[in-house]
Design a protein around this nucleic acid. Structure first.
Lengths: 148, 148
DNA sequence: TATATTTAGTTCGACATCAAACTAAATAGG
DNA sequence: CCTATTTAGTTTGATGTCGAACTAAATATA
C-alpha cells in the first residue's frame, strides 16, 4: 500500500469518526424517540422546499424506499409532516411540512447551539470552514461515481 | 442563525454525506454477510495490535458494550478472531486475531483499490490529503468534548 | 387496444445498534 | 473479613436500515 493510499484511508477514517461523534451529539439532543434521520428529512424539506414525493427524498438521502416509508410514517404519526395523494399520479404521494414540523426543525437546530458554543474556544471555525470546498468536491465525485 | 453557524452545519453535513457514500462503497465490497463494522474491528486490531479486551475496543469505537458483544461474537463464529479468558481478571476477556482474520483485513483493503482507481482521475488526492490535519483537529476536539 | 415493462410505494425478514436490566467478578470501606 | 460498590461482559426489547419480494398504477410496445 502506497503512502498516498494510506493517507486516503486516513482521510475517510477521520471523516467516519467525526461523523459518528457529531451524530452522537446530535442524537443526544433529539427528543423522545426521534432519530437524527427524522430530523434530517424535516431539515431537507425546510431547506429545499416541501411538496415533494417520497421517492425524491429517498434519492436525496440515498436510502432504500422501504427505509423512507418507515421514516415518513413516523414523522406523519408525530404530526410533523402531512402525506397527501399525488394530484396526477395514482402511484405517488406528496409530502408537506406541518407547522409542528417546521417548529421542530427550528427547535432542534437551536438545541445544538450550546454544544457548538461549548467547543467554540477550542475550535478554529475559520479553518474548519476553509475545508468545505474540498469536501464538496469529494462529495460530488463520490456522488457521480455512484450514479454512473 | 449566523453565517458562520450556517457554514458549520454545512461542514458537518458534507462530512455526513461523504461518510455515507464511502461507507456504501465499502459495504458493497464486503463478502457474504459481513458488515463494515466487522471489518473496522479487525482493522483496528491489525493496526493497533491485538490481545486487547472487548471493553478497550468498545471505548475505541464509542459503541455500547452490547454492540461489541454482538460484533465480536460474529467475528469469532467466522473464525476471524479468537476470544480467550483474561489471565488475571475473571470478568474480562482478551481478543486475538487469527490468521484468517489478518488475511481478511488485507483482502478487504485490497478490494477497495478498484474503487479508488475508478475515481482517481477526477480526484485530486493531494488536495484531499491536505485537509487531514484540520479533520484531525476537529476529531480530537469533539473527542475531548465527549469525555469531559 | 392488449400485453409487457417500468415505476412508486409497501411489506417482510434479517441484522446492527442502542439503552437498560442483569450476572459475575473485583475492589473499596467499614 | 463482610458488605457495598464498581467493573466487564451478556441479554433483552425496540428501532433504523437494508435487500428482496410484492402491489398497484403508469407507460411503452406490439
Amino acid at each position: 500500500m502506497s503512502e498516498t493510499e494510506r493517507k486516503v484511508f486516513q482521510f475517510f477514517n477521520e471523516i467516519g469518526i467525526i461523523n459518528q461523534l457529531a451524530t452522537d451529539v446530535f442524537q443526544s439532543n433529539m427528543p423522545d424517540g426521534l432519530h437524527v434521520s427524522h430530523f434530517s428529512v424535516l431539515n431537507h424539506l425546510v431547506r429545499l422546499g416541501d411538496g415533494v414525493t417520497p421517492l425524491k427524498i429517498t434519492k436525496a438521502f440515498q436510502v432504500t424506499k422501504g427505509t423512507m416509508t418507515n421514516t415518513l410514517s413516523v414523522l406523519s404519526k408525530r404530526g410533523l409532516i402531512r402525506i397527501a395523494p399525488h394530484e396526477t399520479d395514482g402511484r405517488s404521494k406528496v409530502v408537506y411540512l406541518t407547522d409542528e414540523g417546521r417548529a421542530f426543525q427550528k427547535q432542534a437546530i437551536e438545541s445544538l447551539f450550546p454544544a457548538i458554543q461549548r467547543i467554540d474556544e477550542k475550535m478554529d471555525w475559520a479553518r474548519v470552514i476553509k475545508t468545505i470546498p474540498e469536501l464538496e468536491r469529494v462529495r460530488k465525485i463520490l456522488d457521480e461515481d455512484r450514479s454512473e
